[in-house]
Design a protein around this nucleic acid. Structure first.
Length: 449
RNA sequence: GUGAUUGUAGCUCAGCUGGUUAGAGCACUGGUUUGUGGUGCCGGGGGUCGUGGGUUCGAGUCCCAUCAGUCACCCCA
């Protein structure tokens, strides 16, 4: 008999019940916030055709897409020769892939279901995504994203709303010291245009994004390496020296796209400021870029400053994502919450309430066949009253039954033996205080509901 | 794809410059009142020391290779 080792593939995780109670707490908080803001749920499948995904995330993104090998005798359909490479072979034997994020499948969904959808369409989606990345802290190969998007309008009020949504959720979860960083891709385009490096936009922007991590000097070195002219760097300096959005207006005077971006940025910041945030800070950050290719306007990223981890959420506006699937002129904007990272932040800061990990509230101890039979209708009544309860399945030793109840966090253990069966009065033990009381089932239900 | 680091019981680890039958805590299990847990006491099971070579009279300990995990870079939630 072969004995398979019980191990998981790299970057994949099991979740114990204890963890799931906590994860669900986050999920519920995010979900109810989404619904409070008028977003409706959808789901898309784990798999997409590979063409749906490639080319949407940048080169690095494409590399990290998990591909699914075709079924059947795929070898007989391949054309192998001397010039065959892994990459060219992949195209012949792979037609499907696991989704890399929720936004691109959503764009596909919108185009495919455009006749069923009323625009502007506000949807939320909470599903797992997969990336063939090297795992490390806060980075997994399978993780959950919770997205809210509005598609079918270019109104900047959506951006304002999404910033509030971020603030709302972080406040409810009581995550302290949260920065919601904001920037605009058009502002970056304007800057890169003035630097005379429009062709290198992606490179410049990705390098710039590392400023906090590697410092200005390294950034400049890297930009020069990538082909940016040295005289352009002084222009970069003037941009980096801006503290507020209004400082940018004179700098971007010469760039149409830059001016447009600035206007957008100003609108969002002004409105958010006017409304006020509960606990998070809205921070303008000229270095915020985001690597995903499809962003075109406002970009957002959320950081929990008290924990050393990547961002716990990100998002932005994409003006043309649906045109990849044949639907033009549909602008969308959305945000994503990284549940797994939020979990780590909350765990590290001890933010989980302690009463979220209880499932069974009442347990009947099992004293034997007749006694168990007596308990079944009582159990039914408790459950009908909405009280989560169970009967220990076998007549095991009391110690074992009590240990089970204790480890499971059961609040009350009910003991029904001969005396209780005769009188109908139950012995109810409070597992926290250790006190025992005698109650009828009606009184117990009254007390617990 | 690049670099660093670790690999001893189910889990967290100890094991000094290589030396007899490899340890602890937790967990599990049995007893300590055969209707009572979480705190006490006594007992028990469980390890080819990641794997494969090498050095040596002798390797958990040293050397090489290999695999796996973790962390960092790249990129990202």
């Amino acid at each position: 008999m072969s004995n398979t080792k019980p191990i998981l593939p790299k970057g994949m995780r099991d979740f114990t019940s204890e963890v799931m109670f906590r994860r669900n707490y986050i999920f519920e908080t995010v979900k109810s916030a989404f619904e409070r803001y008028g977003y409706a749920p959808i789901e898309t499948p784990a798999m997409e055709n590979i063409g749906t995904l490639t080319g949407k995330y940048g080169d690095e993104g494409d590399r990290l897409i998990f591909k699914i090998l075709n079924s059947g005798d795929y070898l007989s359909k391949t054309d192998l020769n001397d010039s065959t490479t892994s990459k060219s072979l992949t195209k012949q034997i792979v037609e499907k892939a696991l989704r890399y994020d929720l936004t691109v499948p959503f764009a596909r969904f919108v185009v495919q279901n455009r006749n069923e959808i009323t625009f502007p369409f506000k949807r939320y989606q909470m599903q797992n995504v997969w990336r063939a990345d090297r795992p490390q802290k806060g980075r997994y190969r399978e993780f959950y994203q919770c997205d809210a998007d509005v598609i079918g309008t270019d109104s900047l009020l959506c951006e304002v709303e999404l910033v509030q949504l971020y603030d709302d959720v972080c406040s409810q979860l009581k995550i302290p010291n949260v920065d919601i960083c904001i920037n605009n891709r058009k502002v970056l385009s304007g800057m890169v245009e003035l630097m005379g490096a429009t062709d290198l936009f992606e490179d410049v922007v990705i390098t710039l994004d590392k400023l906090n991590a590697i410092g200005l000097e390294k950034v400049k070195e890297e930009l020069l390496e990538k082909g940016v002219k040295s005289e352009s760097l002084s222009i970069l300096d003037t941009f980096l020296n801006t503290k507020t959005v209004s400082d940018l207006s004179s700098l971007l005077e010469q760039s149409e796209i830059g001016k447009k971006g600035l206007e957008e940025l100003q609108f969002v910041i002004d409105n958010v400021t006017k409304l006020g945030l509960q606990s998070a800070n809205l921070v303008f950050d000229i270095t915020l870029a985001r690597g995903l290719n499809y962003y075109t306007g406002c970009i957002l990223e959320v950081k929990a400053n008290d924990v050393k981890i990547g961002s716990i959420g990100g998002g932005g506006r994409y003006d043309d994502l649906t045109s990849n699937f044949g639907l033009k002129d549909v602008s969308g904007v959305g945000i994503s919450f990284g549940i797994d990272r939020i979990y780590l932040v909350m765990e590290e800061l001890g933010l989980f309430p302690n009463n979220i990990d209880v499932s069974t509230k009442v347990m009947f101890a099992n004293f034997g066949f007749d006694e168990a039979a007596f308990c079944l209708p009582l159990l039914k009544q408790l459950r009908a009253a909405g009280i989560s309860s169970e009967l220990y399945p076998i007549n095991a030793k009391m110690k074992k039954q009590m240990t089970y109840a204790n480890n499971k966090g059961v609040k009350f253990v009910i003991m029904v033996g001969e005396d209780e069966m005769e009188s109908g009065i139950l012995s109810v033990k409070n597992m926290e205080s250790g006190e025992q009381s005698n109650l009828s089932i009606a009184d117990l239900i009254k007390q617990l509901s």
